[in-house]
Amino acid sequence: MKSFTYERAATPAAATAAFAKTKGARFIAGGTNLLDLMKLEIETPAHLIDVSRLSLDTIEPTREGGLRIGAMVRNTDLAADARVRRDYGLVSRALVAGASGQLRNKATTAGNLLQRTRCPYFYDTNQPCNKRTPGSGCAAIGGFNRLHAVVGASDACIATHPSDMAVAMQALDATVETVDAAGKARAIPLANFYRAPLDTPHLETVLAPGELITAVTLPKPVGGTHIYHKVRDRASYAFALISVGAVVQKDGSGRVALGGVGYKPWRAAAADAEMPRGAKAVTAALLAGAKTSHENAYKLPLVERTLAAVLAQAKG
């Protein structure tokens, strides 16, 4: 690991100010992903600003009847919150489908959104990777890409976003709240938060350097049956091959987002509109234009069948 200096920020304003005046700075919260990548020297910050003790660790009701989840709320606490379990079951279900108990105790809401891909070529510093080393090429294209994206990918990168929580939040129309070094706050719909890889896959979100996530807000509860179905290589503690997060209403309408298929949780208004017509129609709308390799073509029928199982479960 490269050496770095360290400071603990007392307020969000102090954190963003510290970032602005230090070269090579990064924020660290739970650190479960960043520290792992630092050990491999994939991430090499010169300065760490510890934001884990910021008082952004509460879950509060919003005036609109939704919830405002502080950026530092731990994954375990979010999954266990009584309001989340009752009104946003999809978020609880997605969280407990991810990682391990130890990691969920440490990982934060903001950190979960910002975790980086688990593409094995991104992790292997002997391999080319445009996300890790821009311009070096992509070893996953033409390589072992069973785990990789089937939608939204580019000729530079076919990595997927690994978060389960983000899939649930995308289905529930979450918004990411941030503050920058000038003290300016903004709200970014999660749908617009992740950047398509194009020819710059190292740029993953629309956040400006030093912009700090302060909260994630959920709109008022939408009711319905909340189901998160994750398909993985082992029964627990593995990243998704694909996952389906859905909210299904009694009349068959609803919303659906997919994990494990693209650089962000995958959702489309046209697909939601097909919900009453069943899994085949929804999948066709969601995965229109999918580009697969011989190794990950299985994801298309797997999405359809998993969604069919989810819709059957919702009917009871």
Binding site: I28, S52, T76, G101, L103, N105, K106
Partner: peptide
């Protein structure tokens, strides 16, 4: 490497001591 910090289990390998 699991230890219990303030009542919660964590992976002590993925946590900086200074935090």
């Amino acid at each position: 490497c699991t230890v219990i910090v303030d009542g919660r289990r964590i992976n002590s390998c993925l946590s900086l001591a200074v935090q």
